[in-house]
Amino acid sequence: METVIEMNQLGKTFGKTQALKEVTFKINKGEVVGFIGPNGAGKSTTIRILLGLIQADGGTATIFGQDVWKEAVSIHERVAYVPGDVNLWPQLTGGEVIDLFLSMRGKKVDQERKAELIKRFEFDPTKKCQAYSKGNRQKVALIAAFAADADVYIFDEPTSGLDPLQERVFQDYVKEVKARGASVLLSSHILSEVEQICDRVAIIRQGEIVEEGNLDDLRHLTRTLMTVKTKEAVPTLKDQAWAHRVKEKSGTYTFQLDSDYMNDFLHFITPYSVVKLESAPPKLEDLFMRHYETVGDS
């Protein structure tokens, strides 16, 4: 498969803080990759390096095989970017800013596409930017991005401030650009969103990619939420290595099971006369939480 974005051992230091240690991963053509991690883990720094806004001090990063710092301008002709905090000129209207952004691409603006986006996002382009709420300012950047016929879309928490309906519209457009072969890098804290639209996720923590793969693969690494009701009490359940966060309420146990130990669990529980047994599929959130929680340890 054709690689579109490639990062190899990227490093970046701000003063004494090492923001990125070594970030290595790639994104293929037509792939939607979720980029998740706690605040301050290095998501925005990575994205800003990819956009040639700041220069990495170690490693290499390329988009379309071109160096992201040296060839920024020609790369950007095929890249669209939406930051999480969009600030605009207060004296201009949203419509003017959208046109400005599109005109910077040096191509003719597809008015039909623009009008469609404005309609779908329920956006009023005639108001001055100072009158827009946060969500509406995000829409300006989103409309300008999707109206551009780009091959790579980079989103840094793009839906912050959008209502759930508009979030859905955003997801539809991501699926649409994916369908025509564009690649998407989506940094987000809304895990359900990532789970919905991403083919793969990369988890960054303290400037390093700690987990990477497609969602199904990652689920094996995670835990399943189990609910079990037995006739007899199971006092030793909480002592098992594969059981976590065991809670008991009137004979019903809920706990998290290491997904690889399902068989061990079944053998263990059978002697206690099972009345009810439910399992919930592992969520990205559980996987994610594990990485969030360990931040404090190191």
Binding site: R48, G52, L53, V73, Y81, M104, R105
Partner: peptide, 9 residues
């Protein structure tokens, strides 16, 4: 930032 992420020098 937004302008520089576009194909501008």
């Amino acid at each position: 930032e937004m302008l520089q992420a576009l194909p501008t020098g």
